[in-house]
Computed example of a mutant assay.
Amino acid sequence: MISRRNIRVKVMQTLYTLNTVDGEIKNMDPVKLLQKQLDSSRQLFIYLLYTLTEVARYAETDSLKRASKNLPSAQDLNVNTKLSGNEYLWKILESASFQKAVESEKPHLVEDSKTQVKNIYNQLVETPEYKEYISTQSREKKSEKDIFVFIFTNMMLPNEDYISHVEEHFTNWDDDAEMMEQLMLNYLQKPGSYNLQEMVGEEKWLFAKNLLATSREKREYALELIKPKLKNWDAERIAVLDMILMEMGVCELLYFETIPTKVTINEYIDLAKAYSTPQSGQFINGILDNIHKDLMSQNKIHKVNFKNK
Rank of each mutant, 00 (worst) to 15 (best):
I2F: 15
I2W: 14
V9C: 14
V9K: 15
K10A: 15
V21S: 14
G23D: 11
V31C: 06
Q35F: 14
K36Y: 12
Q37T: 12
Q37Y: 13
L38W: 12
R42P: 07
T51K: 11
T51R: 11
V55R: 05
V55P: 06
Y58W: 08
D62R: 06
S63I: 02
V79K: 03
N80E: 05
S84V: 00
W90H: 01
L93Y: 09
L93V: 09
S95Y: 00
E103D: 13
K106F: 13
V117D: 00
N119A: 10
N122M: 01
T127M: 10
Y130S: 04
K131L: 06
T136P: 00
K141P: 02
K142Y: 10
N154M: 13
M155P: 02
M156H: 02
M156P: 00
W173L: 10
D174I: 13
M179E: 13
L188Q: 01
Q189H: 15
S193W: 09
E198K: 11
G201D: 13
G201F: 02
E202D: 13
W205T: 12
K209D: 12
E217D: 15
K218R: 14
Y221W: 05
E224G: 06
E224M: 06
K229H: 03
K231G: 04
K231A: 07
D234R: 07
M243R: 15
I244T: 13
L245S: 01
E252I: 04
E252V: 01
T258Y: 00
P260Y: 03
P260D: 01
T261Y: 04
T261W: 08
K262E: 11
N266E: 02
I269Q: 00
A272T: 04
K273L: 07
T277I: 10
S280R: 04
G281C: 02
F283N: 02
F283M: 02
N285I: 05
L288Y: 02
H292M: 03
N299Q: 14
N299S: 12
K309R: 14
